[in-house]
Structures are given as structure tokens and as C-alpha cells.
């Protein structure tokens, strides 16, 4: 019963999301693109988190994908459409190779190393002036993909989000879920019960990094340029984290809710308080963490449990 309602809601939301360009103006579409981009990043971050590994390297893989896409076209002569999956492949390959080195690290040490790797990607791209355009950045000579058509750009970002959602759903439904939650809950008992920890972590890290790279590719083709400071911005690491946390971690729905909340709040605040909206933004993050420690989802669960308790 409950599951059917959830499915119906998901179907309606998906239909509305696909049909949005038919009835929304250019401004809501642009805001939706920004929200969906961060939403997809938040989902991929959460997917790895289900194993207990906290990555601070989202911006690194996002930026790597962004530069792979733009350099693939500008230096490699690749067709624009191909550059986006190419971005995913490059980021996934980098994550796969680096995974052998770093996936044995745990807790804060894993986080720090992913952060340091992200910075290293940025510095290398920053310093290879002749190949990457250096600190000033690099422009797509042909401009934005689809000639800048607002609806097409919206659907492109939506497609990126759909990939992240599908992967997250697959992680929740397939064997990988048991492996990851087993690792997240208790690694020693997981390995004694025959779960090959390293292999599953490597799969999760490669898949999530590949999607982050894909999103970087979509981003860079949607704006037609890349700068090291722009695509490796710490925002691409911290905002998805905050969104997943505010929505509720360890699932697909939480990051989605969190991204909608923070994304819309930040845009709305900007309209209301042009000077100083970021103060309120910071305070909202503080308050939500303090009063909804398990995110919106956690609060909703608590309230529905409370309501049921009241009935009985």
C-alpha cells in the first residue's frame, strides 16, 4: 500500500520534472538546473557514505570531468556529445586507479586524502598553461551545447540527475547494498562473513566518481567554459554534503529533499535580501542541524512515529 503510494508520487514527480519546460519560464528552469546539479552530486556522495567512507573529493572529480570534457573537444577534436560520457570515463578511471591506493584508509584519513587529491588535480590543471588554458580558463569555441536552448539544457542536467538516481536506486536494491551497509556497520564482521570489502568499496568509489565526472562534463558543456577556480570550487564539495545532511543521509530521498530545500532557499533569500542573504543562509544551516539532527527525513519519521504512537 505504502510502497504503491511512494511509486505513484515518484512517477508524478518524474512526469512533472520531464514536462517542466512546457510550462515554466527560463528563470525557473535555470534555478532547477542549478538545484539538480547539486542534487545529483549530493546523491553520489551519499552513495559512498553508505559504506561509512566520507569523501571530501567531490569537487576534484567534478572538476576533472569538466576539464576532460572541454579538453576532449578543444584539444582532442572530440564531438561535443561524446565529451560528456568521456568525462565520466576519465573520472571513473582515475577513481579506479586511485582507489587501490586510498580505499584502505578509513574515517578522517580517507576524507583528508580525497581532499588533497582534489587540490592536486586543481593545481596540475592550473599549472599546465599551454594544454589546459591555465588559471584564466578555457572556452568552448563553438559555445554552449544545443545552441543554448533552455529546455534542452534543462533536460541534459535532468539526464545527469537521472543517472545519479538510477545508480542510487541500484545501490539500494542490489547486492551491493548489503555489502556496503555491512561495511558501514561493522567492517570486521562484514569481512568475516565473506564480504570482499575492498572490491565493493572500489565499485562504489568508481561508480560515484564516474557520475561526478559526468556531471562535471554536463556542467562545462552547459556553460561553454571552465576555469580551475570555478569547477574545482569548494562549493561543489561542501554544498552537496550540507544538502545530504539537511535532507537525511543513507538513502536517495534525503539528498533530494535537502538539495531542493537549500537550493530554493538560497535563491529565494537572494531575491528578498540582496545584500547579506548569505548570513541568513549560514544561520539556516546551523538551525536545521540543531533542530533536525537526522535531517528532514529524520524529523518526518519521528513525527509519523509520534502520530502513530498517539493513536494507539
Amino acid at each position: 500500500m505504502n510502497r504503491n503510494i511512494a511509486r505513484a508520487v515518484a512517477a508524478v514527480v518524474a512526469a512533472v520534472a520531464v514536462a517542466l519546460p512546457a510550462f515554466a519560464g527560463a528563470y525557473p528552469l535555470q534555478v532547477a538546473r542549478n538545484v539538480m546539479m547539486y542534487m545529483a552530486l549530493a546523491i553520489t556522495w551519499d552513495m559512498l557514505l553508505r559504506s561509512g567512507q566520507i569523501s571530501f573529493g567531490i569537487a576534484g572529480l567534478f572538476g576533472l570531468g569538466a576539464y576532460a570534457a572541454i579538453l576532449g573537444v578543444v584539444r582532442g577534436g572530440m564531438p561535443v556529445w561524446l565529451s560528456i560520457p568521456f568525462a565520466a570515463v576519465v573520472a571513473a578511471a582515475a577513481a579506479f586507479l586511485l582507489g587501490f591506493l586510498i580505499l584502505r584508509l578509513r574515517a578522517m584519513y580517507f576524507s583528508i586524502v580525497t581532499l588533497a587529491l582534489a587540490e592536486m588535480f586543481r593545481i596540475v590543471i592550473h599549472n599546465l598553461h599551454d594544454f589546459t588554458g591555465g588559471p584564466e580558463g578555457i572556452v568552448m569555441p563553438a559555445g554552449v551545447i544545443f545552441g543554448g536552448n533552455a529546455a534542452a539544457l534543462y533536460w541534459l542536467t535532468l539526464a545527469g540527475l537521472a543517472v545519479a538516481l538510477a545508480a542510487s536506486w541500484w545501490f539500494e536494491k542490489s547486492r551491493i547494498r548489503f555489502a556496503l551497509t555491512a561495511i558501514g556497520n561493522n567492517e570486521i564482521s562484514a569481512s568475516s562473513s565473506g564480504v570482499n570489502i575492498f572490491r565493493w568499496l572500489l565499485v562504489a568509489f568508481t561508480v560515484t566518481s564516474g557520475i561526478q565526472g559526468l556531471l562535471g562534463g554536463i556542467y562545462v558543456q552547459s556553460y561553454g567554459f571552465a576555469t580551475p577556480d570555478g569547477v574545482f570550487s569548494a562549493d561543489f564539495t561542501l554544498l552537496p554534503l550540507a544538502m545530504a545532511l539537511l535532507g537525511g543521509m543513507h538513502g536517495t530521498v534525503g539528498p533530494v529533499l535537502g538539495a531542493v530545500l537549500l537550493g530554493l532557499v538560497s535563491e529565494w533569500l537572494k531575491l528578498k535580501i540582496p545584500y547579506g542573504h548569505l548570513i541568513v543562509y549560514g544561520i539556516i544551516i546551523i538551525i536545521v542541524i540543531l533542530f533536525m539532527p537526522a535531517g528532514i527525513l529524520g524529523l518526518a519519521r519521528k513525527m509519523s512515529r509520534g502520530a502513530e504512537g498517539g493513536k494507539s
Binding site: Y27, Q30, Y223, P274
Partner: peptide, 22 residues
Amino acid sequence: IVADDEGKADKAAAAVEKLATV
């Protein structure tokens, strides 16, 4: 009518769309 681009490309694009269409 003033809008903030926050120094970021995606926010800047949203600011143009808002001013142009809203």
C-alpha cells in the same frame, strides 16, 4: 533592478534569466 551573481557562473546565469523574464 539589482541582482547578485555571487561571483559564480551558475548563479550569474540565473540572475540574467530572472531579470530578463521575471
